[in-house]
Nucleic acid binder design. Structure first.
Lengths: 337, 337
DNA sequence: AGTCTCTGTCGAAGCGCTTCGACAACCTAT
DNA sequence: ATAGGTTGTCGAAGCGCTTCGACAGAGACT
């Protein structure tokens, strides 16, 4: 294993000079810099991470807490994680993967041990146990998701309220007057995951303003659950012509069921999904959808975090504006015979 | 920030004693141990990760390289990643998330800097550039997936050859004589990702033995791609009554298309999927499938890696035996009229 | 009583790096 | 020519921990 000292010796300079070449924190003459850089290359030197962390009290690692559950939103989580990892690298950080399993203890452990310099927390609940810890510590953190009280926190999320409103608007504009909302799994609401409630909020308030009737039903993913839910919805409100689907694993089942019942999409029934674009274009009907900008959220979170680490920024809530893309699953409401 | 020295002072012992209490590497009297442990709790001490890594030259971090692409197998990847992270924690390790983006350089960086003690590599190609590096370094590593040459490497994977064979056997046993294989996206084969080719191998050789005709077609995910592929298959071999689907994002589209064409599953056509159980049970027809044991693979990989770190084990290839679960998507081949 | 072996504890030496203050050497403006 | 400012480099002091050798004291054996 090659050390700084060996590089220094090889280049005929002192260790501190090599360090300054590496960090750029003091000016170094061109000649010296070149000599050092060449020695580094020649010897295949890699700075020791532990020593660096110890001496500088910075690990250059960002912790990413992902949910343990793989029951919802998996592609979105994955995409965010990957975006976080790659973006972090461009800023010189690596990413430590923490699952929610340890809960708040993970926060203590990581901040206490200096394992990571900062933290990104996903799948935030409205009253998350981790929040007090994050507020207390002086380690910067960014939440992906929005808790009830955002004071003293930096959050990045899709504006789900606006997302809900946008979906209703689109359907209302097309003349739909009875809209069913196929929501996330009941467990998601029970956990008080913010985004689900905020979407609903946006849906309801805009529906109220536009005089549209709304029927919201949580729904587990999969074909069977969707079948039950759909039957109930149509039983309760046979005049339903518009659907907003938030649970991406309910989308394809819904389309299959509608088809099976002889209801044509979009002639008889319109469907708006809230899902990643990839899902929307791969469905059996190309779906009009509001995209979940997973990559953007991941990139944003890292950008904020790095800004905070550099002392460039304070707390802030960033809500990404939703965008609705019209595809083949929505059309004018059928005129009543 | 609380240090070892402060804990030592608080407990009235030397620093080394505290260290030995923590590591258990020397015997400590019960009384002393208790006193130290109490001081630790009272002061809220967390050992500094950097200092530890420097002094012991072990970081207690496992690097996990995941593929950058989110175009295939996302849930499987995610499940593996989560299983790796949680299993690693039970062994006292944290997980560093690396995307394939940096390529072989990531291997150099991580092993060179001592950032991680060991490495798990996913999405291994048959002739992966990272393999020589992994063989050369003295850092233990485990591959999830199987390259062409496994010498000097530890690998964990589902036995995809046996998986392919199993699928054919099941269909053959039910009387199917013409089987179509809906494979992964063409890009997957072009990359020479091992599992896809090994599956095919298993399918073909067993088909040969059993006198079954096989037609293999790669297929991108999604409805449109599946529609094209299906049309071609049925055009070329109208007598096809069995399908083996490896691309999970082609499963639901295939079922929808078959339904649409009036082909009943499993009365007219049988479908076997190679996919996680969750996908199989959530589909519109409960799918007979060979499960991809993502969690098991993740856990296994960590277990092997930890064993190697402890010097308990050498290189080895672990192939997990496939299990086929019969559900509602397969049945006897229709008798020709 | 003396020797030997454990057991439990301590002190000190680093691990490889960053960073601070010091200081030559040079330049610029008086 | 001199004071003052830059610029480039060095030496040394840690960062907080692990680990090795040393050693006092207790117990077991002759």
């Amino acid at each position: 294993m090659v050390t700084l000292a060996e590089v220094a010796q090889h280049a005929g300079v002192s260790a501190s000079t090599v360090s300054y070449v590496l960090s750029g924190k003091r000016s170094i003459s061109g000649a010296t810099r070149q000599r050092v850089e060449e020695s580094i290359r020649e010897l295949g030197y890699h700075p020791n991470a532990g020593a660096r962390a110890l001496a500088s009290s910075k690990s250059n690692i960002i912790a990413l807490m992902i949910p343990l559950r793989t029951d919802m939103y998996v592609p979105v989580m994955m995409e965010i994680a990957i975006a976080v990892a790659t973006t972090a690298r461009t800023h010189g950080y690596d990413v430590l993967l923490l699952t929610g399993e340890e809960g708040p203890d993970a926060v203590r452990r990581v901040t206490g041990s200096g394992l990571a310099d900062a933290m990104i927390v996903m799948d935030v609940e409205l009253h998350d146990e981790r929040l007090p810890l994050l507020r207390d510590t002086d380690q910067p953190s960014v939440l992906i998701g929005l808790p009830a009280d955002t004071s003293g926190l930096t959050c990045v999320d899709l504006d789900f309220r606006a997302t809900g409103a946008l979906c209703v608007e689109h359907l209302a504009m097309l003349g739909h007057r009875d809209i069913a909302v196929i929501g996330e799994a009941p467990a998601v609401y029970e956990r008080h995951t913010g985004f689900a409630e905020r979407t609903l909020d946006g849906l309801r308030s805009r529906a109220g303003e536009l005089g549209v009737r709304l029927l919201h039903r949580p729904c587990d993913g999969g074909y069977d659950a969707m079948a039950v839910t759909l039957a109930r919805v149509l039983d309760e409100r046979p005049t339903t012509t518009g659907f907003v689907v938030q649970n991406e694993s309910a989308v394809e089942p819904l389309l299959a069921l509608l088809r099976q019942q002889g209801r044509a999409v979009p002639e008889d029934v319109s469907v708006v999904a809230i899902c990643p674009d990839q899902v929307a274009v791969q469905a059996s009907v190309r779906l009009t959808s509001v995209a979940i900008p997973a990559q953007e959220m991941g990139r944003h979170a890292v950008a904020r975090l790095v800004a905070k680490l550099d002392g460039r920024e304070g707390d802030e809530v960033v809500l990404i504006a939703p965008e609705l893309t019209v595809r083949a699953s929505t059309g004018p409401a059928p005129t009543v015979a």
